[in-house]
Computed example of a mutant assay.
Amino acid sequence: MEGFFAAWLFVTGLVVGSFLNVVIARVPEGLSIVRPRSRCPKCGHVIAWYENIPVVSWLALRARCSGCGTPISARYPMVEVLTGLLYFACLRRFGWTYELVPALVLVTLLVPLTFIDLDHWILPFSLTLPGIAAGVLLAIPRGGDALLAAVIGAAGGFLAFRLMEYVGWKVFKKEALGAGDKYLVAMLGAFLSWHALLGILFLASLQGAVVGSLMLALTGRAGPASDAPGDSETPEPTDVAVDPEPTMTWDFTRSGLPLWKRLLLFPVCLLFQPIPDAPLDEEGEEEEWVPGPTNIPFGPWLALAGLEVMLLGPWLGSVLPSNMALLLGAG
Rank of each mutant, 00 (worst) to 15 (best):
P41S: 02
L218A: 13
N295P: 04
V240G: 02
P102K: 01
L184A: 06
G223R: 00
V11P: 00
L304M: 14
G143T: 09
S73E: 08
P274Q: 08
G331V: 08
P41Q: 04
M215G: 05
L14E: 03
H45D: 09
L100T: 12
C40N: 06
W96F: 15
L31M: 12
D231C: 11
P130L: 07
R221D: 02
W8Y: 15
V81D: 01
G95V: 08
G30P: 05
P28T: 09
V15F: 05
M215D: 09
L198Q: 08
W8H: 12
R26K: 10
G313A: 11
L312C: 14
E236C: 02
G135T: 06
A89R: 06
G178H: 00
G13I: 08
P244Y: 10
R64Q: 13
G67L: 09
P141G: 12
E283I: 03
A133V: 14
V81F: 06
Y166G: 01
F19C: 04
L9C: 12
P279V: 05
E245M: 10
I47N: 05
F272E: 08
L270Q: 07
H45G: 08
W250L: 15
L214I: 15
W49I: 13
P314T: 08
P124R: 06
L85D: 07
P293W: 00
P235W: 02
K173N: 13
L312W: 12
A160N: 04
R92P: 01
K174V: 04
L188F: 06
F298Y: 14
G168K: 07
W301V: 01
K174P: 01
W289P: 05
R35K: 14
K42A: 13
P274I: 05
N52E: 13
S322F: 14
L123S: 04
V309G: 01
L113G: 00
E233W: 03
L109Q: 02
V309L: 13
F191V: 01
P237I: 04
E165R: 10
S73A: 11
R39A: 15
P130C: 07
V16T: 04
F252Y: 14
V16W: 00
G144A: 15
I122G: 00
S66E: 11
T219Q: 10
L61C: 10
P28Q: 07
L271D: 08
T234Q: 08
I152F: 03
G292Q: 12
G220W: 03
G208I: 03
D119C: 06
L327V: 15
G156F: 03
L148S: 12
L203H: 05
D117H: 05
G199C: 04
L129Y: 11
A190F: 02
T97W: 08
V290C: 01
L280I: 04
L9S: 09
L163A: 14
R62V: 09
P28F: 03
P54L: 09
F158G: 00
T219W: 11
A186W: 04
I200T: 06
D239T: 13
M248N: 10
Y76A: 01
D281C: 02
A278F: 13
